[in-house]
Design a protein around this nucleic acid. Sequence first.
DNA 1: TCCTTGAGTTCGGAATCCAAACTCAGCTAC
DNA 2: GTAGCTGAGTTTGGATTCCGAACTCAAGGA
Lengths: 148, 148
Amino acid sequence: MPYASFASMPCALGRPAALLGERWTLLLLRQIFLGTRRFEDFQAAMEISRSVLTDRLNVLLQEGVLKRVPYQEDGRTRHEYRLTEKGRDLYPVMMALRTWGEKWMTPEEEESFHLHHRDCGGGVRAKVECTDCGAELSARDVQVTARS
Amino acid sequence: MPYASFASMPCALGRPAALLGERWTLLLLRQIFLGTRRFEDFQAAMEISRSVLTDRLNVLLQEGVLKRVPYQEDGRTRHEYRLTEKGRDLYPVMMALRTWGEKWMTPEEEESFHLHHRDCGGGVRAKVECTDCGAELSARDVQVTARS
DNA sequence: TCCTTGAGTTCGGAATCCAAACTCAGCTAC
DNA sequence: GTAGCTGAGTTTGGATTCCGAACTCAAGGA
């Protein structure tokens, strides 16, 4: 199965893994969650080549993760890229990556940026829980069974 | 900044995003969490080219996500790839991807495989929560501030 | 001795990626 | 009214990376 055909693989984990597993896509989403919205700003912030940036943005548009929104500047109409609801729903994925990165890939006492809950000021972390009993789960608490 | 140098970027989200954002790496991890451990089995399950498989496994070994463990078969010693603790800790990332995939990338009523809590049989989902008050958070509930 | 198997390594062609140059539309300044 | 500037791409030729097939190598087995 060539990489591209994972897009149609019958697996709820395989499809997103193939989509987000292309070079630059996760880094692009990180930049978007940090607030970047315009082509030139992505290009400056990440030093990605312009043609690849065009391609990745188009893939995310096609998948409905991003939308192009017009805005005014100097009386001219331009467009910026924004998350759709589907895109915003990737927040747990980003936070899970960050939680892992902080624990396992952060040298010394570096702190890249702070995240805190607007209401109470607390920290932020990703976790996996049981939808019934609410317990926090690790891989070993979970049973995998083939599709029914 | 070329893609490779994101590995040393001072960002707890950037580094993991660059590591897992290489083609095949997320799909490889998916396969590992599903129980695959041997070179030939990865190759058969994913149809990845052997040279790229070698490369990706080595990167994950170097990062300490995987370890090579000897085992006996037919009286011969061979090796298999297994998750380290660091690797098992990627579980929330995988589950966040799957939770998103089920909601947004699953056509019709497809069910790829079932996950349930061993103890109570409940479902499994990823979420982001506040470490202080325990509330479930979305991107809009979280304030980002530059490193202090 | 030859065959099989798991686990890679090598290699030439195909597909991607990259940086730099080019395009194009709509102002702005002269 | 034309020359320049800017944001947002598109094009292009060379550098990387990926791919599939063939090759290697070590350790049994027939």
